[in-house]
Nucleic acid binder design. Structure first.
Lengths: 341, 341
DNA sequence: GTGAAAGCGCTAACAC
DNA sequence: GTGTTAGCGCTTTCAC
């Protein structure tokens, strides 16, 4: 059942059927009704595939993230979906599992599906396929992770140096000097910048960094769980731990709880990024937070803005949106203990 | 740049280009190489929109859920995505926000986008658009919520009566009789069945149900937070609370923590569905759990199974997969207090 | 092993 | 206000 069938049934041409479906004004009310009735009667469903081919636009946007298990990316998705829905775009979802090969395939698919835009958190920011998007005029908006080579793409980030500095300064003001950090993957911007931010903030505070206190957590729950255990095994464990993202915070929290370490009496725990329940754990966790749904919403705006400009969007230079972060002091940060665990 | 262009450039016909792209065997190796080279050189990207129109199949599946904020649905998505990726299907994501109107629009879109299948958690299980999927031969797999009218669609559920019974029996065996439940939305199957299951299990245990102990939490964090506060305000609060899903458990937990109620010394808390961190809260929470990613994986299998059968899939009768659940006893359930808070 | 050509279902320019 | 028609880019049957 297609427009031609409906046309025949209604005694009009298929062009008229198309006009009715697309709400073209210059259709006689009578004709309109007639066609509408036939459509309903036969349960005709418009074929967007054919339309998309004809219009070379799909009203479709790719959402490509490395790990949908990370609640951060679902919060972003919420805001993004909201914007897309408002503007009539649908989302094609790709999960790359932090895997370069899978990421390539996903981008290839998105390309062939002719998405009108792409919101991506890339594993491989030097991916050649990015160029394909560019040359086809498909706008890309990046979150959190910038392309390493000077990028032409819009992106939404936070000031990672500042975010970590807020945490360090907060701990220092409480009297801590034995501060550890569980850092993330260094080959992505947030990992690199947050670690450097830590080192820099410590330097500024005039506190020497103990190398034993700088351990990798790989931005994962498990990695940070182990990193925390490693920290606990030290002859002199730190009095405070700074984690690099929500997952790391969860891992460190879980490890401290499991080892019966009291927070913050024995060790203070603070991290970057808030998450569901973080404010209701025992104790509620001190974090630096941003609005995740806002990230998604702004990404959607930037993207659809460019999409609607058409090919001229390339004339608009790269836009970098730095979202504000806020230190949210709860109860997991306190004065340092003055004894050894 | 399309296949015709490539054909001209390589000095072959567009049919040959198509064959090369689709890995057709009967192409001379030499021709194959030549075409391949031109494709790479000019960065040609295959157009799936045109292919989909031609083949009237899109290798695309709809994933429609009421609330992507709920970690349950993202865990399901993980398993589902895994299967889809393995079989070469892409996912079109729809979030209905528990809104009947939005759900309708989403289903309409999915229909016009000609998805090959649909994994859905429906708000309105009597939705007329379901019939459109049926008549177009597009298979649907339902999770958790069955159609109320005798449904023809495959679905993946758990035995809600049994799940709640496990919780009730566990509490009873610890000595509880003042058991409360924070139940969910009654117009969806899990809500209805879990509440009925509670009432039935209590009856079987020979324990009268105090009407004050049966409060609605609407399957939300906020709703259950308030429900818990309501319970705490009672002259004689319950000694144990059973929550109806992961979000309710979080809400109840948060409320108890905020009101300095000790778990389980003052009140035991147990719920349906596990979630990230549930095992690492203070105390770790006792829950009835299932494998969420398995839900997604099986849904994917069932769906693609039918898709690959083509139109004959209609001859296969409805398949209902009841996934096992398991009581996971942690530390949030203990003997009842013998005093009033 | 390769090419010519029809046609998937739609939209939009053009004609009337 | 409505119809005719070309064509979006691809796959696939049929010839050779």
């Amino acid at each position: 059942m297609n427009q031609k069938d409906i046309a025949r049934l209604a005694g009009v041409s298929s062009a008229t059927v198309s006009r009715v479906i697309n709400g073209d004004d210059r259709v006689a009310p009578k004709t309109y009704e007639k066609v509408k009735r036939v459509i309903d009667e036969y349960g005709y469903v418009h074929n967007a595939v054919a339309r998309n081919l004809k219009k070379s636009s799909t009203k479709t946007i790719g959402y490509l993230v490395p790990d949908i298990n990370n609640p951060f990316f679902t919060s972003v998705l919420v805001g993004f979906e909201e914007m897309c829905y408002a503007k009539g775009y649908d989302i094609i979802f790709e999960n790359t599992c932090e895997n370069v090969e899978k990421e390539k395939k996903s981008m290839q698919t998105l390309l062939s599906l002719r998405v009108d835009g792409l919101l991506a958190v890339l594993v491989d920011t030097e991916n050649k396929l990015i160029d394909s998007f560019d040359s086809m005029g498909i706008p890309i908006v990046l979150i959190d992770r910038k392309s390493k080579n000077e990028s032409k793409h819009d992106c939404i980030i936070i000031d990672n140096y500042d975010a970590v500095k807020k945490l360090v300064d907060h701990l220092v003001s409480l009297g801590h000097t034995d501060i550890a950090t569980i850092y993330g993957s260094l080959d992505i911007t947030p990992g690199e910048e947050r670690l450097n931010g830590f080192l820099e903030a410590m330097k500024q505070a005039g506190i020497p960094v103990n190398p034993d206190y700088v351990v990798p957590g790989y931005f994962t729950v498990e990695g940070s769980y182990e990193a925390t255990e490693q920290l606990l095994k030290l002859k002199k464990p730190p009095t405070a731990i700074i984690t690099a993202n929500n997952l790391s915070t969860m891992g460190a929290y879980a490890a401290l709880v499991d080892h019966k370490i009291r927070i913050p009496q024995d060790i203070s725990l603070v991290g970057i990024d808030d998450f569901l329940l973080a404010g209701h754990l025992t104790p509620p966790l001190t974090v630096v937070r941003r609005s995740n749904t806002t990230v998604g919403r702004i990404a959607g705006e930037m993207l659809m803005d460019r999409i609607e400009m058409g090919s001229t969007h390339k004339r608009i230079p790269q836009r970098i949106k730095v979202l504000p972060t806020e230190l949210c002091v709860r109860e997991s940060s306190g004065k340092p203990r003055n004894y050894t665990i």
